[in-house]
Design a protein around this nucleic acid. Structure first.
Length: 641
DNA sequence: TCCCTTCAAC
C-alpha cells in the first residue's frame, strides 16, 4: 500500500500493529513506529494505544510508558493497556498496589456486575487459583454463564496446580462434553495431572489426542509429555518424544534430565546436562535441582559438589531448599552422617522437616541411634504431628535394642492421638485401579492372589531368595511366614497384576508410602527378583491362568487396547501413534471403523473400552483414580475422562 | 480500527 503511493491514514496502523507478524518482531515494530512518527500520526489515540500494546507484548515497558506519557488524550483502553499489558503488571511496577487490593477486586466486580463477563471471570478463576483458594476459583467458574475455552483452561490449570489432579481430569472431560475444543494450553495444563498420578494409560490417551489434534509440535505440550512419560517410568518413550522436539528450551531439557535422575542411569542425566550447557546456554536453578538429584540417586558425591559450587560460582544461582535437600540426601545415603548433619545445620535457609528426614532415614540404615535422636528432636519441633517420623524413630530405637525409648515414643504417639497411615499399593488393570492394603482379604481374587504368592515364593526360594528378617521386630514364626506371603501390600498388587494380565505385560505398581528397607536393600524382594529373573516371573502366570476361564482371559486382553484411530487420522499421525502404542499393552485398531459421533480419540477409546457403541458421549466411570492422600486407601474415587 | 483471561520442568 505504501509502495503504491496510496495515503496511509490513522485507520491503517492499529490493524498493521495487530497483525500476526508484528508482535514478535522488535525491528518491524520500530520501523512501523518510525513511519507513524514521519506521517505525524503519533498523537492519534487508536494508533497510540496499538503502539503501546505492541511494545507491551515485547515486554518493553519503557517504550510503553514513553508512548503513554506522550499521548495528548487517553481513554479506557489506554489505561487498561498500561495496567494489564504483558510485563507491566508482572514487572513489579504495579504489583505491590495490585497485591493489596487483590481480594477486593472480586467484590468490586460483583457490585458492578462484571463477574459474569468471561474476561473478568477467567481472570478471577486464575487469581483465586494463584492464591491457592481453589474453592473460590471453582465457584466463579461454575457461575460463569458462558465459559469459553480460556475459562476452562484456567479452571483446569488452577486445579492441577493446586494438586487437585482428578478434579482437573474431571473438568477436562466436562470440557469435551461441552464441545469446547481443547487447545495446546489445555494439554500442557492437564498432562501434569497424569504425571503426578503416574497414570500412564490416561497420559497415553491424552498423548493420542495431542497427536490427532496436531499439537505435538508445541514445545510446552511436548515438554509436559516428556515429563509425563518419565514420571510414569517410561523413560524410553520420554526420550523418543524429547528427541523429536525441534527447538528445545530449558524446560524440555530439565524435564528429560529429571526423568533420568528419577529412573534412569545418572550418566545419561549428566551428559544431557553438559549438552544443555553447550547448546542451550545458562542452566537455571531447576536444571540444577535435576542434575543434583541425578547425582544424589547414584551416589556421585564428587560430581554433586562440583555442580553445587559451579551453580553459584559460574551462574550466580543462590542454592534453594531443593539443592540443599539433594546434597544432604546424597551425603546421608553415602553414610557420611556427621557431614550431612553439619551441612544441613549450616544451610543459609531454615531446613524443613523433610530435609532432616532423609538424614533420619540414613541413620536407620547406618544404625546410628544417637545421631538419629538429635535429628528427630529437630524434626519433631518442626512437624510435631507427622506420624511417619515418629514411627521411624521408634523403629530405630527398637533396632538398637532400646526398647524403653521405643515404647515411650509409641505411648506419646498414642496420647497425641496419632494414627498410622496404612501402606497401600495399587495397580491399574483394564482401566481400573485395584488397591491393596496388607492382610486385606476383601479383593474378589484374594484366594487366587494367595495361591500365586505361594507359587512365587516357592520358585523364589529355589532361585536363592533369602528373606530379610532384620526389620521384623516381633519374631513369631507363623506371622513371619504370613508376612512373607501377604504382609506387604505391593506383593498383593504384583500377584494380582501377574494373574490378571497376559504374559509379558509390564506390571506397574504404585504405592502411597516409601518402600521399606527390607524391600529395598539387603535380602531379596519380589521387585528385585522381577528385575533379575524376568523369565521366571513371566512363566508363573501361565500356570496360574488355569483357574481363569478363557473368556475372562480374552476380556483382559481386549481391555488392553485403548488406542484407536479414525478416518480423519492422517497417515503421518497413524505412524506416530503406531510407533508409540505398538507396545504389548496396546494395539492399533482398524482405521475407518469408528462411528461418526466419535469426534475424538478419547471418546473413541472410551467406547472401545466399554464394548458399547453408544457409550461415546455418555459420561461413564471408566477410570478409577485413587487419591493417595485419602484416609482410607481402599476407598477408590472414580473419575471419568 | 485499539485493551483485558489460560500453559510445561521444581
Amino acid at each position: 500500500m505504501r509502495a503504491s503511493g496510496v495515503h496511509t491514514d490513522h485507520n491503517v496502523f492499529p490493524s498493521v500493529l495487530k497483525s500476526r507478524a508484528a508482535p514478535r518482531d522488535p525491528n518491524l515494530i520500530s520501523s512501523i513506529h518510525g513511519t507513524i512518527v514521519v506521517l505525524g500520526l503519533v498523537l492519534n489515540l487508536y494508533t497510540g494505544n496499538a503502539l503501546m500494546n505492541a511494545y507491551s507484548k515485547l515486554a518493553d515497558i519503557l517504550l510503553v510508558k514513553k508512548v503513554f506519557d506522550e499521548m495528548p488524550k487517553r481513554d479506557l483502553v489506554s489505561w487498561n493497556t498500561i495496567i494489564a499489558g504483558k510485563g507491566n503488571a508482572k514487572s513489579g511496577i504495579y504489583e505491590e498496589a495490585l497485591e493489596m487490593v487483590r481480594m477486593e477486586i472480586h467484590g468490586f466486580a460483583v457490585r458492578h456486575m462484571f463477574d459474569t463477563d468471561v474476561f473478568v471471570g477467567s481472570s478471577l478463576i486464575d487469581m483465586y487459583a494463584n492464591c491457592t483458594k481453589v474453592e473460590y476459583s471453582h465457584r466463579v467458574f461454575e457461575l460463569l454463564p458462558e465459559p469459553n475455552a480460556i475459562s476452562w483452561n484456567s479452571a483446569i490449570a488452577g486445579s492441577v496446580q493446586n494438586g487437585l489432579f482428578d478434579e482437573g481430569l474431571r473438568l477436562f472431560r466436562r470440557m469435551l462434553l461441552a464441545k469446547i475444543k481443547p487447545m495446546p494450553v489445555t494439554f500442557s495444563s492437564i498432562m501434569p495431572a497424569c504425571a503426578h498420578l503416574t497414570t500412564l494409560h490416561l497420559g497415553k490417551q491424552l498423548h493420542g489426542y495431542v497427536i490427532r489434534g496436531g499439537f505435538d509440535d508445541n514445545v510446552f505440550v511436548a515438554s509436559a509429555i516428556v515429563d509425563m512419560y518419565a514420571k510414569c517410568g517410561n523413560i524410553g518413550t520420554a526420550r523418543y518424544i524429547f528427541d523429536g522436539i525441534k527447538v528445545l528450551d530449558m524446560v524440555s531439557w530439565t524435564a528429560m534430565i529429571m526423568g533420568y535422575a528419577l529412573h534412569g542411569p545418572a550418566e545419561e542425566a549428566l551428559s544431557l546436562f553438559q549438552r544443555m550447557e553447550k547448546e542451550n546456554g545458562k542452566p537455571n536453578y531447576v536444571a540444577f535441582v535435576a542434575v543434583l538429584t541425578a547425582c544424589s540417586h547414584s551416589g556421585l558425591i564428587d560430581e554433586a559438589w562440583r555442580y553445587f559450587h559451579s551453580m553459584t560460582r559460574d551462574y550466580g544461582i543462590v542454592p534453594c531448599l531443593e539443592h540443599y535437600a539433594a546434597v544432604a540426601d546424597l551425603l546421608a545415603r553415602a553414610g557420611k552422617l556427621e557431614e550431612a548433619y553439619g551441612f544441613i545445620s549450616n544451610m543459609h535457609i531454615r531446613p524443613t522437616a523433610s530435609v532432616w528426614s532423609t538424614l533420619l532415614g540414613a541413620c536407620r540404615v547406618h544404625k546410628n541411634a544417637e545421631l538419629a535422636k538429635k535429628v528427630a528432636e529437630k524434626i519433631f519441633a518442626l512437624e510435631p504431628k507427622n506420624m511417619g517420623y515418629h514411627i521411624l524413630m521408634s523403629n530405630i530405637y527398637s533396632a538398637a535394642g532400646r526398647w524403653r525409648e521405643a515404647a515411650n515414643l509409641r505411648i506419646m504417639m498414642k496420647d497425641k492421638g496419632m494414627r498410622k497411615q496404612p501402606a497401600c499399593s495399587w495397580i491399574e488393570v483394564k482401566s481400573k485401579v485395584h488397591a491393596f492394603v496388607a492382610h486385606d482379604k476383601s479383593h474378589p481374587y484374594y484366594d487366587k492372589i494367595m495361591e500365586t504368592l505361594e507359587v512365587l515364593l516357592e520358585q523364589m526360594e529355589r532361585a536363592g531368595y533369602v528373606p530379610n528378617t532384620e526389620d521384623v521386630l516381633h519374631d513369631v514364626e507363623e506371622e513371619q511366614k504370613r508376612d512373607l506371603l501377604c504382609g506387604h501390600s505391593e506383593r498383593l498388587a504384583i500377584a494380582f497384576g501377574i494373574i490378571s494380565t497376559p504374559p509379558g505385560t509390564t506390571i506397574r505398581v504404585t504405592k502411597n508410602l516409601r518402600i521399606i528397607i527390607a524391600c529395598k536393600k539387603g535380602g531379596t524382594s519380589i521387585e528385585d527378583l522381577a528385575e533379575k529373573f524376568p523369565d521366571m516371573i513371566i512363566k508363573v502366570p501361565i500356570d496360574v491362568f488355569k483357574g481363569i476361564t478363557d473368556e475372562d482371559a480374552a476380556k483382559v486382553v481386549d481391555g488392553l487396547a485403548p488406542m484407536v484411530a479414525d478416518k480423519n487420522t492422517s497417515i503421518e499421525q497413524v505412524k506416530k501413534l503406531y510407533k508409540l502404542f505398538c507396545e504389548c499393552d496396546c494395539t492399533l485398531l482398524e482405521i475407518n471403523s469408528i462411528a461418526e459421533t466419535a469426534d475424538n480419540l478419547l471418546v473413541a477409546a472410551d467406547a472401545k473400552l466399554n464394548f458399547d457403541d453408544n457409550a461415546a458421549f455418555r459420561q461413564k466411570e471408566i477410570f478409577a483414580l485413587r487419591d493417595p492422600s485419602q484416609e482410607d486407601p481402599r476407598e477408590v474415587r472414580c473419575c471419568a475422562i
